[in-house]
């Protein structure tokens, strides 16, 4: 076989290989749709391969025909006048039939899946209410009441037990958001004034990346969250620790931080379970020290980044409802020390 001229040049081959490697490394992306660590994502993945297969088959064969025609029938010197063909009923009927068959092959399993996903959640499903806010997530565990009789709440991290179906009911406090954890399930919009449902079962423990998928304003890009799928016992332990949550014994910097927290009005917007901080404008801060990030994962959860956030929230996250309180350096380091105790 004749080697195409492009492949005879080593430089181009090298480029091709590095491109391929680039694609491979890209697949390590933590938010990819090929994970299938939830039953819903896994079912979709099966469909995905079917459709990719069908698309590859159709694409390769039709494009091959196109390129063949383009090269084979290229004008050559001395070629005669082409025959005037105006159509052919049998052929035209055939290419009415071919797409019809291909459509049916991909459509029927798709539609079966649509109705399967639309079924009511099983009775043992964990009930969690998801509320989208500009630009953070609130998760309310309707099955578990806290000390005050209200459901347990977590901010920007959703905790789930592995293997148990979870029935999410989604809504929004302001504009339309979309809840999406690609490795666990497809996305579902969180709408203001209307409730939507999403039911799936996490199949493997681990931390899964999620992100708002519907443009929701200035800092839409920074409306990220994590889903932590825990072994059943560990999830139970988490629930119990949250139900009996009280402030840990505070001393020194941390104690000063708790004073600052109250004096500067942080409690007007934030809740810390088991304390008089009952604000609901911003995320519940109980357990913030064990989260992967702060400000809906806009920053990693390190003391430096937390300090950066407290110094001027809108500078980190444009349009953030948390204002710049002009905290002093001492106040900030005290707050950082205090928040670090909220495990």
């Amino acid at each position: 076989m004749r080697i195409p001229p492009l492949l005879r040049r080593p430089r181009w081959v090298a480029w091709g290989i590095s491109l391929f490697l680039l694609l491979l490394t890209a697949c390590a992306s933590p938010q990819n749709t090929f994970g299938g660590q939830g039953d819903q994502a896994r079912t979709i993945l099966g469909l995905y391969w079917l459709l990719i297969g069908a698309a590859l088959f159709v694409g390769v064969s039709v494009i091959a025909l196109l390129l063949y025609a383009f090269f084979r029938f290229r004008e050559r010197p001395g070629a005669g006048e082409p025959k005037e063909v105006h159509g052919n009923t049998a052929l035209e009927f055939a290419w009415f039939l071919i797409p019809t068959i291909i459509v049916l092959i991909v459509a029927i399993p798709s539609w079966r899946t649509v109705f399967r996903f639309g079924q009511a959640p099983p009775p043992n499903a964990l009930q969690v209410q998801v509320v989208g806010h500009q630009w953070w997530w609130e998760f309310r565990y309707l099955d578990y009441k806290g000390a005050d009789g209200n459901p347990l709440v977590s901010g920007n991290e959703l905790y789930l037990p592995v293997g148990r179906p979870v029935a999410l009911t989604l809504r929004s406090a302001d504009v339309i958001h979309s809840f999406w954890v690609p490795r666990l399930a497809g996305k579902a919009d969180a709408n203001p004034g209307v409730t939507t449902r999403l039911t799936f079962t996490p199949l493997e423990t681990g931390t899964y990346y999620g992100q708002c998928a519907e443009f929701c304003g200035l800092s839409h890009a920074l409306m990220r969250f994590r889903v932590k799928v825990l072994p059943a016992e560990e999830f139970e332990r988490w629930v119990q620790s949250r139900q009996a949550y009280t402030l840990p014994p505070l001393a020194g910097e941390a104690e000063k931080g708790w004073q600052v927290f109250q004096a500067r009005g942080c409690n007007a917007c934030h809740t810390i379970d088991g304390t008089n901080a009952r604000g609901i404008i911003g995320p519940n801060l109980t357990g913030i020290a064990s989260r992967d990030g702060v400000a809906a994962m806009a920053l990693p959860n390190t003391p430096e980044d937390l300090a950066r956030w407290l110094r001027n929230p809108p500078a980190v996250k444009a349009g953030s409802k948390m204002p710049n309180l002009n905290l002093t350096d001492e106040e900030i380091s005290a707050l950082v020390a205090f928040l670090a105790t909220l495990k």
Partner: peptide
């Protein structure tokens, strides 16, 4: 066009 795939 397949709603489950569209959800991803």
């Amino acid at each position: 066009a397949s709603p489950p795939i569209d959800s991803q």
